[in-house]
């Protein structure tokens, strides 16, 4: 054994792998870092004001788009009834808004359709990021501000 060498029972230097979390390059992602940051701010603000859970899905929704979107809400567990989900599938050109049982009392189906109209218009123009941001903003506006959170 040469000077400076060690023998370890487990290989310390594994092959490099792309980290599962942390800073990743965004060139292969659909949204830029600035757009992601804006979306994050908008979701945070919507939840802070309304007290509901806001969730945004961007990707394929399978053959039964409605069923899969509702499955996403169910996947949120105890927060499901308080969830407003905005799901956009650009490949299928489909927008789904799903509101849980409690959230549906704050965001009526009619106002959800209004938000869907806005999202559809932006997506048809190719502005996916703007569609998500403004969709969440409209759904949050429809839900209204909780009285105890007006001064937050």
């Amino acid at each position: 054994m040469a000077h400076g060498e060690v023998v370890a029972s487990t290989p310390l230097a594994a092959d490099w792998q792309e980290p599962a979390s942390g800073p990743l390059g965004d060139a292969a992602l659909p949204l830029t870092a600035a757009q992601l940051e804006l979306l994050d701010d908008v979701i945070f603000e919507a939840e802070r004001i309304t007290g509901l859970r806001y969730s945004v899905y961007l990707g394929d929704l399978g053959t039964d788009t409605r069923n899969m979107a509702e499955g996403l809400v169910k996947g949120l567990g105890a927060d499901g009834p308080y969830t407003v989900l905005l799901a956009v599938s650009p490949g299928q050109k489909v927008v789904e808004v799903v509101t849980g049982a409690e959230a549906a009392q704050r965001v009526s189906d009619r106002s959800a359709r209004l938000a869907v109209l806005s999202v559809v218009a932006a997506c048809a123009d190719g502005d996916i990021s703007g569609a998500l941001v403004n969709g969440v903003r409209m759904l949050a506006d429809q839900a209204g501000t909780l009285p105890e959170r007006t001064n937050w």
């Binding site: 992602l29 659909p30 979306l39 994050d40 979701i43 945070f44 919507a46 939840e47 802070r48 007290g51 509901l52 859970r53 806001y54 969730s55 945004v56 899905y57 961007l58 990707g59 409605r66 979107a69 509702e70 996403l72 809400v73 169910k74 949120l76 567990g77 105890a78 927060d79 499901g80 009834p81 308080y82 989900l85 050109k93 489909v94 927008v95 789904e96 808004v97 799903v98 509101t99 849980g100 049982a101 409690e102 959230a103 549906a104 009392q105 965001v107 009526s108 189906d109 959800a112 359709r113 938000a115 869907v116 109209l117 999202v119 559809v120 218009a121 997506c123 048809a124 909780l146 959170r149």
Partner: peptide, 30 residues
């Protein structure tokens, strides 16, 4: 991609709403 916030939700008038599986919402295509 699936994003969601982590603010605590304000529990409202349906304390046991987790058993309720009715959903509202809307859909659209372009």
């Amino acid at each position: 991609h699936w994003w969601s916030g982590d603010n605590p939700v304000a529990v409202g008038s349906i304390p046991d709403a987790s058993n309720d599986v009715t959903f509202g919402g809307a859909r659209g295509t372009w």
